[in-house]
Write a protein that binds this DNA or RNA. Structure first.
Length: 944
RNA sequence: GCCGCGAUGGUGGAAUAGGUAGACACGAAGGACUUAAAAUCCUUUGGCCAGUGAUGGCUGUGUGGGUUCAAGUCCCACUCGCGGUACCA
């Protein structure tokens, strides 16, 4: 009987859907296991073969865990708010809701064909009001909270108000934005607006001014992780630095915990390292430098990690956006400074990064080195960043390469303070050596001088130890339509939360989706965007808002009273296995951890970290194919040269590669007729084939001659004609072949091109395996057959537990080969093989299992499948067969033979057996060997 | 620049604790079946050398060193490729 994959796959997909086979229950005696994929943004282009890679891997694991007797939660949904739908709406006037709906429907159809074991009853979209109600709710919770640095925990804002009433701002150690301190009496005297402004500086979700990434082309601000190389990640538009008042999340308050939390996570080292770099902890000191400008006196705080080099300070630098700039510009320098600031402002983020040119201007002010009393000039330069530390630095050109470049350019003094440092050509940045020219630090090694200098300034009251983090607060406003509206209205200019009962605050209908002519966000177009008569916030939330807690919602997706019930949360707790790409390392995966920690702090959920184990699947790149148009002498423009000939002298450098649709190329051989029909310009195409003959001369007939295409690895994209749709692969080979082949392609975490060459091999394997299930008998299996089976069980179990899915397919192939050579068609062997295959190729496995036992696998789940001793005790014998160990024996690499003895034979016994062997004695010829090396279970070597 | 990862036949890749490198698959070559094609099956397939032959020898995991009885695997230096990050004081 033929392997009719389309019939089999349809049958079982229907069966699973009808029986709700993969529905997870919130109550069970079985242990729970939560497997999650990073949910997709449903784009208009649909899925290509690269998208399901991670889903297939997680599905294998989920199915395996189910067979092992776990209650598995494996949900799927859609990250549905986002820019492409909105841009499409701007162009066509179509409501993003409609676009999103259509795209989701298409994704669902495509996903269903691949045979995933998702619990579709838990599906939702982040753009559903029932869902984003909880995104808004979480935002309001953050708005109503502050971060207590002493307790390392978020607390309700009411407790802060109480503390202010009792002891003013000094009463708490809180994470907060820059601002003036106040006493209890001052607090009590504040107007309502002043109180609101003061509290705003402490809220975890707050409105604050900061330097943001402004993208004029998109008309919106962007978070740091949404900017790549100075261009917007979506659309690739230039980005500028701009000071704006925006909603922000105080992620920086959690920097320490986000860093420490990484320790206990089972994530890859590279991903943890990325997060560590992004959080960017650095230990140093803050010091106060008195600064004088036109006879006005100020105290400027700087941050440094090299307190030891304080004697080498020759100037100070302020960031152009620093608040100090206005105060510290002298009358005489005013014009020059303003010109410089103007020039900096005009630069795009890209230009600022790319240029690396040293620029700056003297402010006219002078600072006093608080340790030496020396007078140093204060400069302004863009190499100092407003957002990091205090936006002001002490410059030590001898021991910092950036300060050095600046000093050289503007001819400022360079004073080395480490013995033997040669600073004639470049700075000496290394934290090593012995201090000199440094007063009380002289003679100390750098490692000791740093803490000594900090202790000194601390004692003198001019500075203190300080840990700085690179991570910034997340900009949370977007000037866009297709996102969650902020549940905030402005009452007398005070940001006030919308009442919980009135959530969700749904998106208003508007006639156009673009910003208004006067640069307001699209929501300003809404007719009545007010609440209780007051204006509502016009920005919407960014993409990461909806994806920050979605994993909690799957635990209890239909709950109208809470994001997740306590009961469901206590059962499912957190994600055991999370599968997704590394591109979310510094975005979603940081925000989610922050969001989760916040909800944990307010006692809402029971786990501090959301994702216990994380696997990163690699990117599937495109594999483009090319035809080579002849452009040499006498070219007609419609002659194409086979790839194997293009290096020949007559064609070399006379051909032009042209992308050709990979779907009309098979194993790099072009389908000539399909090519001619593909586009009008190829209608009359003629060819020089692989054997050098020309289509004009031979009078081409289909299939007779081969035209070979060249290939290259590129990004999978429409313009390269290298997009492969899973639907086409499934139509041709079936979902099981697709699943197996995606895994067979290479290690899960590695990036690799989609190469359809070779898919035949996997398909052939399934066909051959299928044929073995034709006439199943009840004969007793032989030792050899049991041995094959057991090798496979061990291998597949190991592979799945270690996410080494690519090595499983060869193991199946080998077992299939061995068993078909033995003409094995015995139920006792074939049934367990169907079980082993089920996670990888579920449809065919179900059908094969059904043929063995007339049962669906579901009926057997949790009854010890995958566990040899319980299900098939007779198979213990197979282990005995395997317990004989072969020892390959070598004599100085010259003579070889194989010794066979039981596996647990002690070393000494093996040694004796080796020496007693006739080949050994022949070789030794009476001499005594220097050494006999026996490695248990491995090789034996004799050294003469 | 800094951090991380990688480099194995014509191709994708395997080698799971330092222990027979190249599993498995693709491609290629040859053969069987067939009027023919497709499909299927069988044989060969890292390179070089010797042999009619079974087979044997040498060489071989980016480059150069090292540790070890034994290195794709460990150490040092380097080359190239990929990913992240970039004036973070």
């Amino acid at each position: 009987m033929d392997y009719n994959f389309s019939e089999i796959e349809k049958k079982w997909q229907q069966w699973w859907a009808q029986n709700k086979t993969y529905r997870a229950t919130d109550k069970s005696d079985k242990p729970k296991y939560y497997v999650l994929d990073m949910f997709p943004y449903p784009s208009g282009a649909g899925l290509h073969v690269g998208h399901p890679l991670g889903y297939i891997a997680s599905d294998i694991f989920a199915r395996y865990k189910r067979l092992k007797g776990f209650n598995v939660l494996h949900p799927m949904g859609y990250d549905a708010f986002g820019l492409p739908a909105e841009q499409y709406a701007i162009q066509t006037g179509q409501h993003p809701e409609k676009t999103t709906h259509d795209n989701v429907a298409r994704y669902r159809t495509q996903l269903d064909r691949i045979g995933f074991s998702f619990d579709w009853d838990r599906e939702f979209r982040t753009s559903d009001p029932d869902y984003y109600k909880w995104t808004q709710w979480a935002f309001l919770k953050m708005f109503g909270s502050w971060y207590d640095n002493s307790l390392q925990k978020a607390r309700p804002i009411e407790e802060l108000v109480k503390a202010f009433e009792e002891g003013g701002s000094e009463a708490v150690n809180a994470a907060c934005s820059e601002g003036k301190a106040f006493t209890s009496a001052q607090w009590k005297a504040f107007s309502e607006k002043e109180k609101a402004d003061a509290l705003m500086r402490y809220r975890l979700a707050y409105l604050g001014e900061s330097t943001v990434n402004w993208c004029p082309a998109l008309g919106t601000v962007l978070a740091n992780d949404e900017v790549k190389d100075g261009y917007s990640e979506r659309g690739g538009h230039p980005v500028f630095q701009k000071k704006m008042t925006q909603w922000q999340l105080r992620v920086s308050a959690y920097a320490g915990r986000l860093l420490d939390g990484l320790e206990k996570l089972d994530w890859t080292d590279s991903l943890k390292e990325m997060q560590r770099n992004w959080i960017g902890r650095s230990e140093g000191a803050e010091m106060v430098f008195p600064v004088e400008c036109d006879n006005r006196k100020y105290d400027v705080t700087i941050f440094t990690t090299r307190a030891d080099t304080i004697f080498g300070v020759t100037f100070m630098v302020l960031a152009p956006e620093s608040e100090w700039v206005a105060k510290l510009t002298s009358a005489s320098q005013k014009a020059e400074v303003e010109a410089y600031l103007e020039q900096v402002k005009k630069k795009t983020e890209r230009e600022r990064m790319a240029g690396k040119a040293v620029t700056g201007v003297f402010s006219g002010a002078y600072g006093i080195n608080p340790v030496t009393g020396e007078k140093v000039p204060v400069w302004i330069s863009e190499y100092v960043l407003a957002g990091y530390g205090t936006g002001a630095i002490m410059a030590v050109p001898a021991h910092d390469s950036r300060d050095y470049a600046f000093a050289r350019k503007f001819d400022l003094p360079i004073v080395p303070v480490i013995e033997g440092a040669d600073v004639s050509e470049q700075s000496v940045d290394a934290k090593e050596g012995i201090m000199c020219n440094s007063g009380f630090l002289n003679g100390m090694p750098v490692k000791k001088a740093i803490p000594a200098a900090i202790a000194y300034v601390q004692e003198k009251g001019i500075g203190h130890r300080k840990i700085n983090y690179r991570i910034r607060d997340a900009i949370f406003s977007r000037q866009r339509y297709w996102g969650e509206p902020f549940p905030i209205y402005y009452k007398d200019g005070i940001a006030t939360p919308v009442a919980f009962e009135d959530l969700p605050l749904t998106l208003p209908e508007i006639d156009q989706y673009k910003p208004t002519e006067d640069g307001q966000p699209p929501l300003a177009r809404a007719k009545d965007w007010t609440y209780k008569g007051y204006p509502l916030e016009k920005s919407t939330m960014p993409g990461f808002a909806g994806s920050s807690a979605y994993y909690l919602r799957y635990m209890d997706p239909h709950n109208g009273e809470a994001l997740v019930s306590r009961q469901a949360d206590e059962y499912w707790r957190n994600v055991d296995l999370y599968v997704g790409g590394t591109e979310h390392a510094t975005g979603h995966l940081i925000y989610s951890r922050f969001w989760n920690k916040f909800l944990y702090d307010i006692g809402y959920i029971c786990e501090d970290e959301p994702f216990k184990k994380l696997i990163n699947q690699g990117m599937i790149q495109g594999r483009s194919n090319f035809v080579y148009r002849y452009i040499g002498e006498g070219a007609t423009g419609n002659l194409y040269i086979s790839y194997n000939l293009i290096e020949n002298p007559e064609y070399k450098d006379k051909v032009q590669p042209i992308h050709v649709n990979v779907n009309i190329v098979n194993n790099d051989v072009l389908d000539i007729n399909a090519f001619r029909a593909w586009m009008p310009e190829f209608k009359n195409a003629e060819f020089v084939f692989a054997d050098g003959t020309s289509s004009e001369l031979t009078g081409y007939t289909a299939g007779a001659k081969q035209y070979i295409c060249g290939w290259a690895v590129e990004k999978m994209s429409k313009s390269m004609f290298n997009v492969v749709n899973p639907d086409d692969v499934i139509a041709k080979f079936g979902a099981d072949t697709l699943r197996l082949y995606e895994m067979f392609l290479g290690p899960l975490e590695m990036s690799k091109p989609w190469d359809t060459n070779g898919i035949d091999g996997v398909h052939r394997f399934l066909k051959r395996l299928w044929n073995m299930y034709e006439n199943i008998t009840d004969e007793e299996p032989t030792k050899e057959e049991l041995r094959s089976l057991h090798k496979l069980i061990k291998k597949i179990t190991w592979d799945i537990e270690n996410f080494s899915f690519n090595t499983s397919i060869p193991a199946f192939m080998i077992a299939q080969n061995e068993l078909s050579a033995l003409k094995c068609s015995k139920r006792a062997i074939l049934e367990p093989i169907a079980v082993l295959l089920a996670p990888y190729a579920p449809h065919i496995a179900e059908e094969m299992y059904h043929r063995c036992l007339s049962l669906s696998l579901e009926g057997r789940a949790g009854e010890g499948l995958f566990v040899v001793n319980e299900s098939w005790p007779e198979c213990n014998e197979a282990y005995l067969v395997e317990d004989t160990q072969k020892y390959p024996v070598q004599f100085n690499g010259k003579v070889r033979f194989t010794l066979e003895c039981p596996k647990d034979t002690p070393k000494e016994e093996v040694e004796k057996l080796v020496l007693a062997h006739e080949d050994t004695s022949k070789y030794l010829a009476g001499n005594t060997p220097k050494k006999v090396i026996v490695v248990p279970g491995r090789i034996v070597n004799i050294v003469m």
